[in-house]
Design a protein around this nucleic acid. Structure first.
Length: 536
RNA sequence: GACCGGUUCGUCUAGGGGUCUAGGACACCGCCCUUUCACGGCGGCAACACGGGUUCAAAUCCCGUACCGGUUACCA
């Protein structure tokens, strides 16, 4: 029989990174085995389920590239079938009506009430007074309109057992399992019933889910048993914990646990997917970077861990706002992935930062008038429209070279619009630390840098494109800058770093010669003459 | 409380009786490269929870303890 797995989130919030990993493992297993990866939205808790949340889950899966097969199943659509199943079990004597009045519980005390009740000395799970109520009396009570829940009649003696693909043999004595409620007194089917019914209905062969369901499995097994259906195989996944080994929750830990945070903060989907895959599973080799194809090829249930993993983010530390390894992996992807795959991601980032220009799409650098381009720029001020002399060189080729150049030191896609802003716009900020370190520390630069601009202007005239003059390239720039440095009797670093700060606003970046060339002659000259940074 | 799991560097992990004076990655630190750096290169720090067994031999098998987690709902 071919494999059919499912990811079954309840749409009560954003997509949690733990759930995302569960989805990923299901996906990998399905693709690995040539099976189907199905999606089921468990929206039976109508009070908490929202459409927005469903949307966000779908978006998250799409972002990670986990395409599901077949139609999405909405559990709420199956409620009638669930009820029917419960009635069937009732009719067969495998379940019974419990007329015990429903306890009124307030949200806050639910957990406490459970613990409280559990602490009471040894409960006998079979002592429900309605368990063996005669059919006649049961019907009489129903006829009189008395509300009831339907509970599964768990056998008196025996045990449930199953071989978990991750945790091995699991056994549980019946006496440790209560007569679980299948149908609420208001007719609402409960989780364990719904899951079993739907998994049967969907022909699920392998249930891969969080370890928090490990003990639920025994209850579900009892339902399969009552229904006379062979249960699927189970594989439970270790949990992902917060740094304090506690539960990773939005309420306590905020945005770091939401998958969308990573999308919105410049993560490359493949990088985060790679990171997630390695949180709780390993191929058993000394390798960290895996393409999706490799993950599919290497993935197997028996290399999944049994111990929980800590998601090691640091609150209140902007540089380590999420797990360091995730950050590192993202940087690794940004600087090593094929450029053509990175380009569209950077384009999207520049677009959302309003830094994208249509020229980056054009192969030719001819035929674009400056006025033409100025009119396409939404955010430019008056003066900038006139003085945007570099535009004519900023075509697709320039864009690709620039991205390739600056990606080496970036951690997220956001860096292209923040750290790398100066490459794409005249409107960029100066890092005060960089200004202090590279400019104000050397007051002479205030004279020298504009002077260097004059030198560039003289050395590289406008006929460069006709080949009659030296082009503004690294090789030639180096000659000019070195001569200038010697003239001033200073160190090359002083000039270079001062120029770097003026040209890019920051203290770090690629080789300064390539920065000059990339920024281009006209913009370089303009920026070297600018006093903005000095006055800031 | 009961039941069920888990425990290898700070974190993710390799390992499944001898090849382990425990390997890799991230982070951190140092050195090198260099016009800067968060790139790159080299190196360093750092772990088998504890106690008993079994065995010629245990990180690996068994038992106990400790600690952590999950479940214990007419939530999912």
């Amino acid at each position: 029989m071919s494999v059919r797995v499912r990811f079954a989130p309840s749409p009560t919030g954003y997509l949690h990174i733990g759930s995302a990993r569960t989805a990923l493992y299901n996906y990998l297993y399905a693709r690995k085995t040539g099976g189907k990866f199905l999606l089921r939205i468990e929206d039976t808790d109508l009070a908490r389920s929202t459409e927005e949340s469903t949307r966000s889950i779908l978006d998250g899966l799409a972002w990670l590239g986990l395409e599901h097969d077949e139609e999405i199943v909405f559990q709420s659509n199956n409620a009638d079938k669930h009820r029917e199943t419960a009635r069937q079990l009732l009719a067969e004597g495998k379940a019974y009506r419990d007329f015990t009045p429903k306890e009124a519980v307030t949200e806050k005390t639910v957990k406490e009430a459970i613990v409280e009740r559990a602490r009471q000395t040894e409960r006998n799970h079979r002592d429900n007074q309605f368990r063996d109520l005669s059919e006649v009396e049961s019907e009489t009570r129903v006829a009189s309109g008395e509300p009831f829940a339907i509970r599964l009649k768990v056998p008196q003696a025996g045990k449930t057992s199953f071989e978990d693909a991750v945790y091995g043999l699991q056994e549980r004595d019946y006496s440790d399992t209560e007569d679980l409620v299948l149908l609420r007194s208001d007719g609402h089917p409960l989780y364990n019933l719904a899951v079993v019914c739907d998994d049967i209905e969907m022909g699920i062969t392998h249930v891969i889910r969080g370890q928090d369901h490990l003990t639920n499995t025994h209850k579900q097994l009892l339902i399969y048993q009552a229904l006379g259906v062979t249960p699927p195989k189970f594989a439970h996944l270790p949990l992902i914990l917060a740094p304090n080994k506690g539960k990773l929750s939005k309420r306590k830990h905020g945005e770091v646990v939401s998958l969308t945070t990573y999308r919105d903060n410049g993560f490359v989907p493949a990088a985060f997917r790679n990171f997630l895959a390695l949180l709780g599973w390993s191929a058993g080799e000394e390798k960290e970077i895996y393409s999706l194809e490799e993950l599919i090829e290497k993935f197997s249930l028996d290399h999944i861990h049994r111990s929980n993993a800590i998601f090691n983010f640091h609150e209140n530390d902007p540089r380590h706002w999420t797990d360091d390894k995730a950050l590192w992996m993202n940087a690794e992807y940004i600087r090593t992935m094929p450029l053509e795959e990175l380009l569209p991601l950077v384009k999207a980032e520049l677009k959302s930062a309003k830094l994208w220009r249509e020229e980056y799409n054009s192969i030719s650098d001819l035929g674009f008038g400056i006025a033409d381009m100025a009119s396409q720029k939404g955010d430019a001020g008056d003066s900038e429209q006139i003085s945007d002399p570099a535009s004519h060189t900023q075509n697709q080729e320039w864009y690709e070279r620039t991205v390739d150049l600056i990606r080496q030191r970036f951690f997220t896609l956001k860096d292209f619009s923040s750290q790398g802003r100066a490459y794409f716009s005249e409107d960029y900020d100066f890092d005060p630390a960089a200004v202090a370190k590279n400019l104000t520390k050397f007051p002479d630069l205030r004279e020298w840098l504009p002077e260097l601009a004059d030198r560039f202007e003289a050395e590289f005239d406008d006929t460069e494109r006709m080949g009659s003059s030296r082009a503004f390239t690294e090789e030639h720039i180096e000659i000019v800058v070195k001569a200038f440095t010697e003239e001033k009797g200073t160190k090359l670093g002083v000039i270079m770093n001062g120029a770097r700060t003026l040209l890019t606003g920051v203290a770090v970046g690629p080789s300064m010669l390539s920065v000059f060339e990339t920024i281009g002659k006209d913009r370089t000259i303009m920026r070297l003459r600018s006093q903005v940074a000095w006055n800031a």
